[in-house]
Design a protein around this nucleic acid. Sequence first.
DNA 1: GTCTATAGCGGGATAGAC
DNA 2: GTCTATCCCGCTATAGAC
Lengths: 217, 217
Amino acid sequence: MPAAAPPAADTRILDAAETLFARQGFAATTIKAIGAEAGVNPALLYYYFPDKARLYHAVLERRIGGFSRGALASLPAGLPPLEAISRLLRGYSAMMRQAPVFPRLLARELADHEAEHALPMIRQLAAGIFQRLCDLIRAGQRRGEIRAELEPRFAAISTVAQLAWFHVAQPAVAVLLGHAGRIPPKEQDRFTEHAVGYALAALTPPARAAGRKRARR
Amino acid sequence: MPAAAPPAADTRILDAAETLFARQGFAATTIKAIGAEAGVNPALLYYYFPDKARLYHAVLERRIGGFSRGALASLPAGLPPLEAISRLLRGYSAMMRQAPVFPRLLARELADHEAEHALPMIRQLAAGIFQRLCDLIRAGQRRGEIRAELEPRFAAISTVAQLAWFHVAQPAVAVLLGHAGRIPPKEQDRFTEHAVGYALAALTPPARAAGRKRARR
DNA sequence: GTCTATAGCGGGATAGAC
DNA sequence: GTCTATCCCGCTATAGAC
């Protein structure tokens, strides 16, 4: 294809809507603002989408669907559990970097979970990444590489929470780290590596018996 | 005082506004709905508050102020760092339980951080709990009870992230844990204890030399 | 497919009676 | 302090020209 054809009107509308919904939320974003951001007449929106709510759904589905597929795709089968968990965390970080709009959409959906649109998205994420992480932790426990006394689902939450919170709470985290605006990419990378180390330290048994299987008991 | 005098009108308005802002967000909550929820004429709102935005600020200040003060109050000075960190986490959980509305207000503020009202709240939280936790981690490192290679601020984020995410992401977490609606209190308690254990395992040095100071460099 | 014009409703806020 | 009545604005959505 020739160099970067300008996107079609419906894509421009979706992009504009995503930007504004993430920044301001559903109720505070007007049809007119979306049209202006997309460089399109506001009424055109109703040619492509039935109403504002379903435009919002389309935005979520496009973004969340891509996220779920991407996160799991970065995981070749057959890796040792601890290695797979490390990759999952790094892959998660990379995806957040690629789509900085995602944490804000997610934060809104979490706050809005009583609204009808939120649940399917949450269910999809839970069934995807979270479930996969749980399975990895159980596998690690069977091999004696992860502490047996951990409840796998709790451990999965704690492990993913580090990165999830780091990204969702960016404004708070930035203040804590002493940055005025956004957190620079280099610092994000450093945190990702820290998070991997923190998780591994929390998951693995204290005795240095990871090499031998089940040294005692 | 005699048994539970009905709260004054301004308090009823604040309570109603808090409920609705947490449930629906600022933009989606109408003055009329607040009046109805408070059992008060909507116009009365403008007798006590200049406008909708400042009513929202009042809601945040009342809730956040109380939260910050409460979290730090549960920490007597002079405790050993690891003990203090455990207490901080348990205190944090207890406060979230007392004020279930807090995580949702927080999630909204994080998503809305470009709006003018969010920053002071975030700054207050950062300067309070987060900062305190950083100091505790540094103290633990000096005593050799916490791994020296950890960046204290990163470690503080990871530690608090477990509980912060658990509460802010309640709807997602509930789905993951297999609960249809809310997470039962007992399960919340179990997660809190898990989080304390997970954090201590991640923070403390792998060698079992916590008793002796600096066993080997 | 894209735009103009506008209907119709519901929002925030105020004036003023009581 | 509390309520009634209402103004005015901006929003979503539609009709229909091009």
